[in-house]
């Protein structure tokens, strides 16, 4: 199953500020809800997100249960060189979702 969608322009001019958007499929279970028997449903969220551009971190986030399900993030970066923009979402359960996008800079 595809677990993430990312949006990066395929091409950009050097020095141009580009918008990046990232969305991952995740329930973001808060840990504050109870099930039908009154038992607390354990917290299970994406607690950290990191975006790198050719290996260098360009944006990161620490997320709390108040981030909506299927977390959405939009931010910017300056197009410097053709390369790979990589995305990682770190879950409480130890899982890591990853996605990449290539950008050509002219």
């Amino acid at each position: 199953m595809s677990r993430a969608l990312v949006s990066v322009p395929t091409t950009a001019r050097r020095g141009e500020v580009i918008e990046i958007r990232a969305m991952a499929a995740h329930l973001m279970e808060t840990g504050h809800r109870t099930d039908a028997t009154g038992t607390t449903i354990p917290r299970n969220i994406i607690h950290r997100f990191v975006c790198t551009y050719d290996g260098d971190e360009i944006f990161s986030a620490v997320l709390f249960p108040a981030i909506a399900a299927n977390p959405f993030l939009a931010f910017t970066t300056t197009a410097t060189t053709s390369g790979v923009i990589a995305f990682s979402w770190f879950g409480d359960d130890g899982s890591v979702q990853q996605a990449t996008a290539e950008i050509t800079v002219t």
């Binding site: 504050h32 944006f59 986030a61 997320l63 959405f72 993030l73 939009a74 910017t76 970066t77």
Partner: peptide, 26 residues
């Protein structure tokens, strides 16, 4: 909300613009 924190974003100069969007629960 049950917890006061929502998110902490880390930015660098190469962001070019200081603007971040997300979706939150209230």
């Amino acid at each position: 909300n049950p917890q006061a924190e929502v998110a902490v974003f880390r930015l660098w100069p190469r962001a070019g613009r200081a603007q971040v969007s997300t979706r939150i629960r209230l």
